[in-house]
Write a protein that binds this DNA or RNA. Structure first.
Lengths: 190, 190
DNA sequence: GTCTATAGTGCGATAGAC
DNA sequence: GTCTATCGCACTATAGAC
């Protein structure tokens, strides 16, 4: 009789997603999740600092793609161009065959304000990381922060559109359009 | 002997701010706050849906100033111009004699991630309200959302600068500068 | 106003991997 | 033997239900 099977974190993650989707986030206790994969509540909290964090596993890798994308932009690129480069890099994180999974995850999040909060916090961290990457390129404040937050805004609007019912364009294509809209915002005549 | 003094909500608010500042948000229980003004924990939760909400009382009025500011912009103003008008209106919410109080409040918030989360949620609501006001002006999506989020970004950057040590300019003056920077972002040559 | 479920923490014990 | 994943138990505070 084995005391523990490997992959506890991933089993917990999968079970949590299923239960959150089935009966809702608040109606699912940490003990429910743990029990459903043969572990205890205490072990659940070893792997996830709280119940919400399950839905945001993989954030670091996601963020790193943005940071690397900024770093990879041509040396003479403007702040917004470097951000555009990062957005394209990040789109590879969401190939079209992940759309169904992403929709399922997003449905869980929008159904619960506290999960929405957590998502916003993660986006704020992403923004801070991008701003830092821009500063490493020599871009000063407040331009670094403004460009980073604009990038996160573009990502957010694009991502939601990517998940919209009936939408079939790739995330990269949508980002392109949205970025064009953002650039046009400022140049509107007064 | 009076059974209860008036102004329970305000006394709770003041007591919470003091205790959060003194010993930290997590080290302060709802019972502590209530007891310090002669009320019970149960009463605290009558006035504030949760412990964090105390720091965000007055959000509705704040948000309304933005919405009204958007509505008050000249009819032919662009989306970003309407947002600029809202930003100027909102600055009146933060006269210089409130800077000390705002600094104190912000210190509490940045010291605690869960408060930061709540603040981000409030900013997201603000953004949604501004976008809605822009749509009422006939601005379509995604421009309405992009302009609204840009406005909130400008507000956030400006507000933090307004609170920065040594800063003496008014919030309105800072917003002007930051808005200029945002407009310049998109027009940088490639 | 009371009662209760549950999130989340701290610490120590235990069982297996190596 | 060490190292580490897991568990057990006691506990506090939040928040909601009754």
């Amino acid at each position: 009789m084995v005391r523990w099977k490997p992959g506890a974190q991933q089993r917990l993650h999968a079970a949590a997603m299923d239960l959150y989707a089935e009966r809702g986030f608040e109606q699912t206790t940490a003990a429910d999740i743990a029990q459903s994969v043969g572990l205890t509540e205490r072990t659940f909290f070893r792997y996830f600092v709280d119940k919400r964090e399950v839905l945001f596993a993989g954030q670091e890798a996601f963020q790193q793609v943005f940071v690397d994308g900024v770093a990879a932009a041509p040396e003479d690129a403007s702040a917004l161009d470097a951000v555009a480069s990062a957005l394209q890099a990040a789109a590879s994180f969401f190939p079209d065959d992940r759309r169904t999974h992403s929709r399922r995850r997003q449905a869980i999040i929008v159904a619960n304000p506290s999960l929405h909060e957590r998502e916003l916090l993660k986006m704020a961290w992403l923004s801070a990381a991008i701003a830092e990457a821009l500063r490493r390129r020599g871009i000063a404040e407040p331009q670094a922060t403004l460009a980073a937050e604009t990038g996160v805004t573009v990502f957010g609007v694009s991502y939601r559109q990517w998940l919209a019912e009936g939408e079939e364009r790739s995330l990269a294509a949508i980002e392109d359009d949205v970025l064009r809209e953002v650039r046009a915002l400022s140049s509107s005549t007064v």
